[in-house]
Amino acid sequence: MQRLPLAYIIPGMKTYEEVVDANGRTLCGKGVELTEEHLKRFQEFGVQFITVEGLKVRLPWEKTLEEELEGLEKRFEGISDPVLLNIKEVLKEFLLEKYKET
């Protein structure tokens, strides 16, 4: 999953969550393949960011799944508190899900 400024979105990308306009109105559901018409409409309604499936755009600051998992291990190195370790597990599940479609 990636959340991108509207200018980065191209037809064919799939929404990961609903697209909502500035007044809270839903413009498009989740899992929808975006078309040129969608993008025009989003622009008209002042949408700034859209969350799409996968990691379609290479962002210079974005890490790969391997880098993310490695960083996670490092941040939790030597930690034995069971609650913190549970948080680590949850994060791992979250990351695997986030990077699933790539």
């Binding site: 941040r75 939790f76 930690i79 994060l91």
Partner: peptide, 22 residues
């Protein structure tokens, strides 16, 4: 604070996740 450290967003003087008060 603990969760953002755990997620690894940004940086502080804590290189590891700081202690959590349950």
């Amino acid at each position: 604070d603990v969760l953002i450290h755990a997620r690894g967003y940004g940086e502080s003087l804590y290189k590891k996740v700081p202690p959590l008060d349950e």
